[in-house]
């Protein structure tokens, strides 16, 4: 059982990230997953978040109570959801967008220049996919193959190659 929170602002692909992780786990890795999104005006700009629960058995209670992983792509998102993160959790932040507080407990913290890496690929809209690559390598919650299939499945056909490239870039960044 893993509880994952993505936080950022509208337009960063926060909800799409949740869908990709959920899809990768439940369709390609044959686990169970439930994805919920903060729906409403916030989905169209401003603060935005999505949550994914992964499990080997059917997910019943569908919401995050204590998150195991927090991916923060905005300061506001970080401030709001950091307290929810487990003492033993994993924290992933975009280092150009989020200033983190001192590390609490045994939290594993990673700063990733995801937006910058995406810009190197030509467009900052890939920042969330870079982040997903890093997420996959760092947490190992979903298989790389599963995630790649889920990414390819969730973007328009003409952007598949670029997205997979961005995914790999994030994945490699962790390996380095």
């Amino acid at each position: 059982m893993a509880e994952i929170r993505f936080a950022g602002y509208g337009g960063q692909g926060i909800i799409r990230s949740g869908i990709i992780v959920g899809k990768g786990a439940s369709i390609y890795d044959n686990k169970f997953s439930t994805m919920n999104q903060a729906f409403g005006p916030e989905a169209r700009g401003g603060a935005c978040s999505s949550q994914v629960l992964l499990s080997d058995t059917k997910v019943l209670y569908p919401y995050v109570t204590v998150s195991d992983v927090l991916v923060a792509m905005s300061q506001e998102g970080y401030d709001m959801f950091e307290p929810e993160l487990s003492d033993k959790g994993t924290l992933l932040i975009d280092e150009d967008l989020v200033k983190s507080k001192p590390i609490r407990g045994k939290i594993k913290s990673f700063s990733i220049p995801s937006t910058r890496l995406a810009e190197e690929l030509g467009n900052r809209v890939f920042a969330n996919v870079v982040m997903l690559g890093f997420f996959t390598a760092a947490t190992k919650l979903v298989s790389k193959e599963g995630m790649e299939k889920a990414v390819a499945d969730s973007v328009p056909e003409r952007f598949i190659k670029l997205n997979l490239k961005a995914f790999q870039k994030g994945y490699d960044y962790y390996k380095e």
Binding site: I19, S26, F32, S33, M35, N36, Q37, F39, V59
Partner: peptide, 10 residues
């Protein structure tokens, strides 16, 4: 309800 309507699962 909205929760079930907007929740994504397999």
């Amino acid at each position: 309800d909205e929760c079930v309507g907007h929740m994504s699962e397999k």
